[in-house]
Design a protein around this nucleic acid. Structure first.
Lengths: 344, 344
DNA sequence: GTGAAAGCGCTAACAT
DNA sequence: ATGTTAGCGCTTTCAC
């Protein structure tokens, strides 16, 4: 059972390959192909189960109908969910997605970007690592359709879709303060990237704008390389030393390590320590007590990303960068002293 | 900055495209290209940063250097981790991976399989849905390199890599019995597929081979369609009605719903109810008490899958199917009455 | 030792 | 209204 080609269809239909191509690409009418011929070709296509060869088509058109998606870590719940949304949205436009995970390693990110270029993807969706700016600048200069996600480079005008991280952490801090916690701590990563910086600033800002609070805020920065093994340990030492009455974790995996640390210390949430984490996660919903968090609108992010990318791919290349900043949502549960009420 | 082609290299090197192609594909020596020419070409390639166009190459050779990976749900921790391992392993052989999630929906699975075929992937790694047998049989008949994962069709001779699900659930049951639980229950899905059937059988077998136990085992089958919304509710009703003293969940997401259900009922683990779940998950590690589980050797699975697939792609097509059955591992934590000791 | 030429399957400019 | 033709960039057979 050999693969049939456009040529075979043409032969059987008694027309030229060109005509078949027109029919296939919906350009039949504008090229004044007769109704009769259109029908004949369409029937044949169905009958023989003809499928155009994407490589031949790609070679000719320069388009692969593929987009490259580079996330930090596909096995992280936030990115995995996002990836699925993006896959679905892309499919609506006939695009396939090639995923990859940087693991926040510069070398790996560069290598993967090369891989995507090499694959001639039609567009890029990236959560860049800290030092990927030059590579991305290059892509922009080459006018490649591209959308940044989750983080961006303030000095590099590109499309991006992010959430308001400042607002998110502010909400967290305000919430904590509103529940009478006074001695707050924050756990972040050492990352200098926008999303983390803004989470830090938003938190601090909310703290300082409350004039009744004079307590300095303890801060722990976990380095990503070390995170894997002893992150929970680092956190528990930090908590033990600083004795905050509430703590904010700047990402879901930090929050998870945080739970582990607090569990290890044997402290009770929320009576001995209050807690809020960025990002939602099953464990936050099910843990006892359930953990209050700042959730990102994952579906919306994915939808906007594809929307922007598709506009770019389809010629809207020369307008200004499109930048969406979505609002996170505080999901109040039990880790700060109230009964659970998910405001979804 | 235009893309340079093999032709450009040839022009600059003052040789023919043929020669360049030979050098690029390591066929230079066997075609007696002179050392001198080889060097000249290689230098040019480096200098100009030449990258062969995979579409042109693919069109010519019929290979895409891409493999299709179809899992049940990429946002499920087990599959996400597996996907990352597979991505890494495939990369070692120069292959890219296109992922997709069936969500256990037949129509979706078929559509995705079509998509992969259409993309001309060089090999398939699949976790089939229940009724995908005919489609897979077709792939086998067409001699497409293919490996099944997680589940398989007993009557269809294909390559596969799975774990010993029977053994896994037996271990769980034995463990529960060994801790004095007498009235066991099991929660599975309605799936008729091998992995679930064997988990059920393994559990029952261990139960019946202990002659001191006469208690019939309560069994709840959750239908996947309904699982999303009210699975936890179904489970809590089931537990309330049957009052088992221990319960086994046949997948990680069932285990997670189980935690939710038990939490809802306000029962204490392990004193009021013992619990074991299939598959590991952060939440099982961090929940209080930590949940004992039957973990799958994810990295090994991924490694074997790629190994088998690559052997197939590289011509080993005509030998018998290769079938690996790996051993799961019981990770004993606190949900059956002992102190946590992860035996990793 | 090296090159010419054909062709993978498709599209699009240019006929007619 | 439809066909001819010339590639897209690469590999490979065969000729020199």
């Amino acid at each position: 059972m050999k693969k049939i080609s456009l040529r075979d269809i043409a032969l059987r239909a008694g027309v030229s390959p060109t005509t078949v191509s027109f029919v296939l690409n919906g350009k039949a009418r504008e090229n004044r192909v007769s109704r009769e011929v259109i029908r004949r070709v369409e029937v044949l296509v169905k009958e023989l189960g003809y499928e155009p060869n994407p490589m031949a088509r790609g070679l000719r058109t320069g388009r692969t109908m593929t987009i490259g998606l580079m996330v930090e870590d596909i096995s992280n719940h936030f990115f995995a969910t996002l990836a699925k949304v993006i896959e679905d949205e892309a499919d609506k436009f006939g695009y396939d997605v090639i995923y990859c995970s940087t693991e926040n390693k510069e070398a790996r990110a560069k290598k993967l970007l090369e891989m995507l270029k090499h694959r001639r993807v039609d567009g890029y969706i990236l959560t860049p690592t800290a030092h990927l700016k030059d590579e991305i600048r290059k892509l922009v200069q080459e006018e490649k359709p591209l959308v940044l996600m989750d983080r961006y480079f303030p000095t590099l005008p590109t499309n991006y879709v992010v959430i308001d991280n400042f607002q998110g952490s502010s909400m967290a801090a305000t919430h904590l303060l509103g529940h009478g916690y006074q001695k707050l701590a924050i756990v972040t990563t050492v990352s200098r990237q926008t999303q983390m910086q803004q989470r830090l600033r938003g938190f601090m800002h909310a703290l300082h704008s409350d004039s009744t609070i004079a307590t300095p805020c303890a801060e722990l920065c976990i380095s990503f390389e070390k995170a894997g093994e002893n992150a929970a340990e680092q956190i528990s030492r930090f908590l033990k030393k600083n004795k905050p009455d509430a703590v904010f974790f700047a990402t879901n995996y930090l929050g998870i390590y945080g739970i582990e640390a607090i569990k290890y210390l044997g402290w009770k949430i929320p009576s001995q320590i209050g807690m809020v984490s960025f990002d939602d996660h099953v464990i936050f919903r099910l843990y006892q007590p359930a953990i209050t968090c700042v959730a990102q609108p994952v579906r919306k992010i994915g939808e906007y990303v594809i929307k922007v990318l598709m506009e770019n791919i389809n010629g809207g290349m020369h307008s200004d960068p499109v930048q969406h900043i979505l609002s996170p949502q505080l999901i109040i549960r039990e880790s700060c002293g109230e009964r659970s009420h998910v405001s979804e």
